[in-house]
């Protein structure tokens, strides 16, 4: 029994890091634009399709090359998203900002479906295998996700604190008008932020291929539950996303011990609602 609980904890935490990365990518855009990117799950899916579908399967390039080329593509996607969606919507009311990103996501979904068809596929042998810690098991891909999540957060923090662009991004986060007055090109900044967010989406999409295979709906659940991670950890606070992700993952995993397993999916949403009601700034959140 103890073994089961520990194994559930490990699985839950591992999943939590996926949620954490999702929280990070949308928090970046939220901080920079005040918009919640409802198309993020489609961008994650797009990342997986571009890397595994276009470069690896259709063009037969080796995985590392596919990945690097995909980064370039996703940067362009980020720029496109910023120019066509984020910047125009920024000035509009909430309804349009939400619906705008939702519709953008649906357009991407349809494009993917028309270009790649609907059959799920996978990259054989990609990051398969498990790591054993005593009698506990964790999939290798989960280990990579954990490592990457930590690296991404650390890298972003360093980037935001030390580089000029990063500092500019922080200014834009805090006060757009003031940033503009100080000569920061806000629109350009948002484009860069969107590009970084899209690349993180690519990473997520790529890393979950061994878990979910490449399919049109591969990211819809982690997309929605990823919102919970950000809220729980501290909306818009990057290290908070990791905490939030782990908390959500653990609670979800542990819930099978107390409630019928079919309701497990509802748990993440319930946690989301509770936090929004009680502590919308999240566990580590500071600003409101």
């Amino acid at each position: 029994m103890l073994n089961t609980i520990l194994q559930l904890a490990v699985s839950g935490a591992a999943l939590g890091f996926v949620y954490a990365l999702v929280g990070i990518e949308y928090s970046l855009i939220w901080n920079a634009t005040g918009l919640l990117n409802f198309s993020h799950d489609k961008i994650i899916t797009l990342g997986a399709y571009v890397a595994a579908g276009l470069f690896f399967t259709k063009m037969g390039l080796p995985i590392p090359v596919s990945f690097i080329l995909s980064i370039v593509v996703m940067i362009l996607v980020g720029f496109l998203m910023a120019t066509v969606v984020l910047n125009p919507l920024r000035k509009m009311t909430t309804i349009f900002t939400i619906m705008g990103t939702i519709l953008f996501g649906k357009m991407i979904y349809e494009l993917i479906r028309l270009l790649y068809g609907s059959a799920p596929f996978t990259v054989p042998g990609l990051m398969t295998g498990t790591v054993h810690i005593g009698s506990l098991v964790i999939a290798k891909s989960n280990v990579y996700i954990i490592v990457i999540a930590v690296i991404v957060v650390a890298a972003l923090q360093i980037f935001m604190q030390t580089t000029k662009t990063g500092k500019a991004m922080r200014c834009v986060q805090q006060n757009k008008k003031a940033s503009e007055l100080m000569g920061i090109n806000v629109k350009q900044n948002i484009r860069i932020t969107a590009a970084i967010s899209s690349v993180i989406c690519l990473i997520i999409g790529f890393m979950v291929i061994p878990l979910y295979t490449v399919s049109l709906s591969m990211a819809s659940m982690i997309g929605l539950k990823g919102f919970a991670a950000g809220v729980v950890g501290g909306f818009g606070f990057l290290p908070g996303c990791i905490v939030g992700g782990i908390v959500v993952g653990l609670i979800e995993s542990a819930s099978v011990l107390v409630i019928p397993s079919v309701y497990k999916d509802a748990v993440a949403f319930l946690v989301l609602i509770i936090f929004l009601l009680i502590k919308p700034t999240g566990i580590l959140g500071k600003k409101s």
Binding site: L8, S11, V18, Y212, S220, S253, S255, V256, L257, S261
Partner: peptide, 11 residues
Amino acid sequence: GDTDVSGQILS
């Protein structure tokens, strides 16, 4: 669309 079935399988 479930993201992880370890819990159920372990049960």
